[in-house]
C-alpha cells in the first residue's frame, strides 16, 4: 500500500493511495490511487457518479476514507485536518452562499475564519472580487447573483487564504466562454506560482485545454496505466478536410482504406485509424497522393477518447453501479 510513497512524493502535491469510501451499501470510491504534482493542473475525469466528488470531499478533510492513505503536502488529513485546512482551498460542486450577506462581507468573514485580521481580510476580499469580476456586485446581497456569478464567488472563497493546494469540483459549469478563458488564465497563474491544482469535471474538452495531467475515474476506480495504454492504441476516428470532397474520397480509395472505415459528417470525412503511427502514415499517404489536406485531427479529444474507451471497458468488466447519483451522498 505504501509502495508509491517510497519514491519521493512531491513536497507540495497530493498523493492518494488505495483510497476507498462507501456509504452503507453504495461503494462511492472503491480504489483510488494517483499523484497530483505541485505546479501543475491535474484533471479528474469521470462520468456522473464516478466518485469524483466523494474523492474530493476526502481530500478536503470532510470525509474520512474507509481505507487507504491521503497525503496533502505530506500531511494526513485524517490525522491533522487543521493543518491540511490551512493549506487547501476547496470549491464544492454545490453552490452555497449566505444569501443575505453581500459577497464582500462573505469573503471578509471567510478570510477572518482563516485567521486574517480585519484589515487584511477586507483587503483580500476587495482583491479577489476584482480578480473574479464581481466588484460591481460586491455590496448587493448574494441572493441577486446569477449562477455563474455565484460560481465566481465560490472560486474567490476557495482562494481567500492563497492556498497551496486547490481542489475544484466542476469549477467551470455555469460560466460563459469569456469567464472560462479568464478562469483558465487565473488557474494557470496560480499553478505557475507552485500550487497544486486538482479539477474535477465531466466536460472533457474544457478540461483537456487546461490540464497538464489527467486522472481517469469510473465506478469508483481510478484507471490503471495498463488501461490508459490500451486506450491510446485503440481505434479512433480522425476528421479530414481537403479542398474538394471528391478528390479526398478518391484518394482514400486509392490508398486502400476499407470503405467501412470511412464516414462523413457535416464537418468533414471521418476515418477510423488505430494509433498515432497509423494516422501519421495515412496523412503522408494522402499528401503523397496529391490531396490538398487542410485539416487532419482526431474527431474527439484525447480525454474524451480515453474516457469513452475506459467507460466501455469498465462496463464490460463489471456490473454498473446501482444508483450512481447517490455516490456523493
Amino acid at each position: 500500500m505504501t509502495e508509491s510513497m517510497t519514491d519521493s512524493p512531491p513536497a507540495d502535491g497530493v498523493v492518494v493511495d488505495g483510497v476507498a469510501r462507501s456509504f452503507g451499501s453504495v461503494h462511492a470510491v472503491r480504489q483510488a490511487s494517483f499523484t497530483a504534482r505541485s505546479g501543475s493542473i491535474t484533471g479528474l475525469v469521470g462520468p456522473n457518479g464516478a466518485g469524483k466528488t466523494t474523492l474530493l470531499l476526502m481530500l478536503a478533510t470532510l470525509l474520512r476514507p474507509d481505507a487507504g492513505s491521503i497525503r496533502i503536502a505530506g500531511i494526513d488529513p485524517v490525522a491533522d485536518p487543521v493543518a491540511v485546512r490551512a493549506l487547501i482551498g476547496w470549491m464544492p460542486d454545490t453552490l452555497g452562499t449566505w444569501s443575505s450577506l453581500s459577497p464582500r462581507t462573505a469573503l471578509t468573514t471567510i478570510g477572518r475564519m482563516y485567521n486574517l485580521d480585519v484589515q487584511a481580510a477586507r483587503r483580500r476580499a476587495s482583491e479577489l472580487l476584482a480578480t473574479v469580476g464581481l466588484t460591481h456586485l460586491a455590496d448587493r446581497p448574494a441572493r441577486v447573483l446569477s449562477r455563474g456569478q455565484k460560481q465566481r464567488l465560490s472560486l474567490a472563497r476557495a482562494l481567500v487564504h492563497s492556498p497551496r493546494v486547490l481542489l475544484l469540483d466542476e469549477p467551470a459549469s455555469g460560466l460563459d466562454p469569456a469567464a472560462r478563458t479568464e478562469l483558465r488564465a487565473l488557474l494557470r497563474r496560480i499553478a505557475d506560482d507552485g500550487a497544486t491544482i486538482l479539477i474535477s469535471s465531466h466536460e472533457l474538452a474544457e478540461l483537456e485545454v487546461i490540464s497538464d495531467a489527467a486522472v481517469y475515474m469510473s465506478a469508483g476506480l481510478t484507471a490503471s496505466s495498463d488501461a490508459l495504454t490500451h486506450a491510446a492504441t485503440t481505434t479512433r476516428q480522425w476528421r479530414i478536410r481537403a479542398l474538394g470532397d471528391a478528390p479526398l474520397a478518391t484518394a482514400l480509395q486509392q490508398i486502400g482504406v476499407a470503405p467501412e472505415n470511412i464516414a462523413t459528417d457535416n464537418r468533414g470525412t471521418l476515418v477510423s485509424v488505430t494509433g498515432d503511427a497509423d494516422a501519421a502514415q495515412l496523412l503522408s499517404a494522402l499528401v503523397a497522393a496529391g490531396t490538398a489536406v487542410t485539416s487532419f485531427a482526431p474527431a474527439v479529444g484525447d480525454f474524451e477518447h480515453t474516457f469513452l474507451d475506459l467507460t466501455k471497458n469498465s462496463a464490460a468488466d463489471q456490473h454498473p453501479e446501482p444508483g450512481p447519483e447517490g455516490a456523493a451522498q
Binding site: 478536503a60 478533510t61 470532510l62 487543521v82 485546512r85 490551512a86 487547501i88 476547496w90 464544492p92 454545490t94 453552490l95 452555497g96 452562499t97 449566505w98 471567510i110 475564519m113 482563516y114 485567521n115 465560490s154 472563497r157
Partner: peptide
C-alpha cells in the same frame, strides 16, 4: 451548502 465551506476553514 454553506456548512461544509465553513468547516473547511480553521
Amino acid at each position: 451548502g454553506t456548512l461544509a465551506t465553513t468547516q473547511v476553514t480553521l
